[in-house]
Computed example of a mutant assay.
Amino acid sequence: NQSVETDFILSGLFQYGQMDTFLFVAIVILFSVAMMENIILVLLIQVDTRLHTPMYFLLSQLSFIDMMYISTTVPKLTTNFLSNSKNITFLGCEIQAFVFLALGGTEALLLGFMSYDRYLAICHPLRYPILMSKKICWFMVTSAWTSSSTNALVHTLYVFQLPFCRSRIVNHFFCEVPSLLPLVCQDTSQYEYTILLSGVIILLLPFLDILASYAQVLTVVFQISLGKGQTKAVSTCSSHLIVASLFYVTTLSTYTRPHSMHSPEQDKAVAVFYTIITPLLNPFIYSLRNKEFTRAMRRLLA
């Protein structure tokens, strides 16, 4: 009977009895705050001409991605909770998996480009206007979208043509490729190597680029700055690294392990960090703590 059905069933995130309502309210609040932060950031960067720089252009793209990224999972999660239904159509599951992979990959690549931007601004300030021209910025964004969307399309088309004959219950709160593989009734060990390769290219390489870029930035800052300048640089770089590490480490742990080593409860907890927490923290860490951005906010309010 299950092999004839076309819908999937999402087990969901709320399975803790009396804690369900509390978790639901907490997620709705986090979602609302994340959307508000990112909307404000995008609008302010568009309105204030002083923020029309490569750094803020990339930040606006990051916020735009984060808004779509968190909207891919949370609305369906809350709708299922309110309607007491856990179903998602085959096509809906396929679309959700594709969009989530495409947005996640784009964000991973974009974070790497943003660290490269800061490296050029601090380590090569005289060449910065040429190396980070408007044309190059658009090339970075376009290449991130194109490569991640192509990767997501390939994985999605392959996974959803596999025979799902074991069960239709996805032990997750959204359709994600690793959570779908246990439902397939054929050997997927060879395919898991392609997931590992994609994870290395789209997740690990940008993360290594961020570590190398900030290492160079801190080296230059400590050579030319004293006192408060060094403290500010260390504070900024460390906060950026913490948020980036939260995103990359959690996604790498999901996409670089074979599905035989996955635990559904652990996967759900880890997924909360890169689906909800990261879009919530990105605007605060990268912009709202920036004095130039707060001055722009005051000018707009005035």
Rank of each mutant, 00 (worst) to 15 (best):
P182C: 04
I88R: 05
V234R: 10
I122T: 04
D117S: 09
Y128N: 00
N1E: 06
V249K: 11
Q223R: 15
T251A: 09
P54I: 00
V4R: 09
S198Q: 10
V220R: 15
V170Y: 14
F100W: 07
P178I: 02
C137G: 08
Q2D: 06
F24W: 14
L300H: 06
Y116Q: 10
L196H: 06
T156K: 10
T142M: 12
Y116D: 08
F113S: 13
F247H: 04
T278P: 09
F98I: 03
I195P: 01
Y274Q: 12
I242G: 02
L183Y: 03
Y274A: 10
I95E: 10
L211Q: 13
L120F: 08
H262D: 04
V25M: 14
I95H: 12
L241K: 06
L183D: 00
T142Y: 13
L62M: 09
Y191F: 12
R127N: 02
I276G: 10
F139G: 05
L226E: 15
N80W: 11
L280I: 04
Q18P: 07
I70Y: 05
N38I: 01
M36H: 14
L180V: 09
Q61C: 11
Q61A: 10
A121I: 11
D187A: 01
Y158S: 11
K134T: 02
G105V: 04
L208R: 08
T72N: 09
I88M: 05
E192A: 08
I39R: 07
L211R: 13
M140V: 04
I9K: 12
P75K: 13
